[in-house]
Design a protein around this nucleic acid. Structure first.
Lengths: 209, 209
DNA sequence: AAACTAATGCGATAGGAGTTGCGTTTGTCG
DNA sequence: CGACAAACGCAACTCCTATCGCATTAGTTT
């Protein structure tokens, strides 16, 4: 009863099954880009993908499942942060790219939809959590490198700095619903760096010295 | 055509109309607390409030309208931040109260629902925006007072500091979906204060010196 | 290529959300 | 107290979402 979980689409990876997953994910992304999260329905996705709606319900369960899978489908697995300049410049670039990914009319609605879906389904929560853990983990190299160069105090927690940079942007976008200017981004970077230089993000050496 | 907007419930404030609004708002809050945002339906709210569902649809339009009105209904208009200690302590208290309002099983689901509703309706967006503008405006006194006491640089923008404190908390709660500990709160406060002391939030004097 | 089975297509159907028309109740004002 | 209008209750109806049983297609295996 533990290994008998049915996961449609994994037992027969070749041919039509894979093609359908591709078509459905693309259709989901297009529907999100055109009509937004609130208007996303299983039927329209199915029709656009040239697939029967029953198939979608069976394989993806519903709208939330579609969004989660579309995220994993659309994610760029090879993404890496830019490391070519000073910390400040690398963080600025990081924040600007992130903001653009939510304001760009092509990718924005999709990413926004995933954040929204996390309010309705636990799967989406996990998907979002894992996505940010992955991206922030990669982004932390910016801080690691900077620390090695002596630009930041030794022992600075990379993830804390990245979060401090990104949090105000996401906060304005999705919580307080304020507009986000480039000045705001610069301020977020400067604030995070000031805190980092002051040693606020230095990790406690728990396991001895 | 400009002043003829129908706003049911405002033309006849006495008696049943007001009672119904009260009952419906209470029912909405209870439903949210018990079943969450995703399970909130007009019919259940109507039944719980002892009101016909048609009435709810007519006066509130739907689920989003219910949530928006329930927010305004539940908001404490007399709220003021605590100003009794040092900046650091006042900000800590502020952040802890905010976090609690989202994790408390009684008020949490409601507040979370409002944030979630903002992903689906423009009215909710405005409601959330106004709510935060109001609360942050009041909270900024913490910074104003501290600046006058010389704890922070002259010209520090109060709202920026408040946002810097709160953003990481909301970010973890609703975006990256990480848990929020008291250490995280302390770190957020320390980071915001370090940036403020470094002058990152000092406003540019635009209109002359 | 023949047998086997996962995956899909199709129609029917239940169930809920939201709307509409109409009669009734209930504040409000003369 | 009586007239007027706002707000409400009620029932029927439409539309959409989601599910189910069964026939068919298409990958996989031998």
């Amino acid at each position: 009863m533990s290994t008998s979980e049915r996961v449609p689409g994994e037992a027969r990876p070749g041919g039509r099954t894979a093609r359908n997953r591709d078509a459905v994910c693309r259709a989901t992304l297009l529907e999100l880009a055109n009509h937004g999260y609130a208007a996303l329905t299983v039927e329209r996705v199915a029709e656009r993908a040239g697939v029967h709606k029953t198939t979608v319900y069976r394989r993806w369960g519903g709208v939330d499942g579609l969004i989660v899978d579309a995220l994993q489908f659309a994610v760029d697995d090879d993404w890496q942060p830019w490391l070519g300049g000073a910390v400040e410049d690398n963080l600025l670039e990081l924040a600007r790219v992130a903001l653009r990914s939510f304001t760009d009319p092509e990718t924005g609605p999709t990413h926004t939809a995933v954040v929204a879906a996390a309010f309705q389904s636990d799967e989406a929560i996990n998907a979002v959590h894992d996505f940010f853990a992955d991206r922030f983990g990669r982004s932390s190299r910016i801080i690691t490198v900077a620390t090695e160069r002596g630009e930041l105090p030794a022992g600075t927690d990379p993830l804390s700095v990245i979060r401090a940079v990104m949090a105000p942007i996401y906060f304005r976008l999705f919580i307080s619903r304020e507009s986000v200017s480039d000045d705001d981004i610069q301020q977020a970077v400067q604030a995070a760096l000031a805190a980092a230089r002051a040693g606020v993000f230095v990790m406690e050496s728990i396991s001895g010295e």
